[in-house]
């Protein structure tokens, strides 16, 4: 589903943000990407979204060579990748329902599709009672659920999350992670960048650890690390 070969990314010469990255992620896998701030987690995620182009190497996502992908085709790539962020990125002047519906509206889905899929996905994330609430009426955890609903409403084969629990307390984080787990169970490939040690240790999923741009560990049923 995701394949990176010899990928490197330099923002400034001689200081790699990522180097010698070789990763294969199969369809349906659940992967944690861990590391300190500045270790290259966000660069990793943004390369997969094609927010950034690598300085070198090959990246295949959902069967497409995204380095060679033409600019106008990028939106269609992104329809296959759901994204969740630390800061939720919800529109404050829209309700939960409207925020999720917006994602379908702007890729040209019909009203009928919107009316059936939005309530369904909001039920999936446990917000069926909060469909008409605005983001500032929701807790952090609930806002993140809306944002996950938005990322998943189009049923993308891949879900990327960049520090999804960075702003949330541990109990809420646990809820969010089990939500990712449920989404993963539907067959979606899930990649979560985090430095939430407890979470990673408790889930026992595949862990890819980054340090100053290099992969230092890639372990199935792994843990966060050996202390740092």
């Amino acid at each position: 589903m995701i394949s990176m070969r010899g990928v490197e990314k330099y923002y400034v010469p001689n200081e790699p943000a990522l180097a010698e990255v070789n990763v294969e992620i199969e369809a349906g896998e659940f992967v944690f990407l861990v590391g300190h701030s500045g270790s290259g987690k966000s660069t990793f995620i943004r390369l997969l979204q094609r927010e950034l182009l690598p300085t070198g190497g090959q990246i295949i996502v959902a069967g497409q060579d995204i380095v060679r992908l033409k600019n106008w085709k990028v939106p269609y790539l992104r329809r296959n990748i759901g994204c969740v962020f630390q800061d939720f990125k919800l529109l404050p002047n829209k309700t939960s329902y409207e925020n999720v519906a917006f994602a379908l509206e702007v890729i040209g889905r019909s009203k009928h599709v919107i009316r059936t899929q939005v309530p369904e996905v909001l039920r999936l994330v446990g917000l069926e009672d909060k469909m008409e609430s605005y983001p500032d009426e929701l807790s952090g955890g609930e806002q993140q659920r809306v944002s996950i609903a938005r990322a998943f409403v189009n049923r993308p084969p891949i879900l990327l999350a960049d520090e999804p629990t960075g702003n949330l307390d541990p109990a809420t984080s646990l809820g969010i992670m089990s939500l990712f787990n449920r989404i993963n169970k539907t067959g979606t490939t899930v990649l979560v960048a985090t430095h939430d040690r407890e979470m990673v240790d408790s889930m026992r999923k595949r862990v890819i650890a980054l340090e100053s741009g290099h992969i230092i560990r890639d372990q199935h049923r792994g843990v966060y690390g050996y202390g740092d």
């Binding site: 979204q49 600019n71 106008w72 939106p75 269609y76 790539l77 992104r78 329809r79 296959n80 990748i81 994204c83 990125k89 529109l91 917006f102 994602a103 702007v106 890729i107 040209g108 938005r150 990322a151 189009n154």
Partner: peptide, 17 residues
């Protein structure tokens, strides 16, 4: 700019934006 960011994120086509 926020809407535009989200539109790009969820894959709205360039001309749609």
């Amino acid at each position: 700019r926020k809407e535009i960011g989200i539109m790009r994120l969820v894959g709205a086509s360039n001309w749609f934006i």
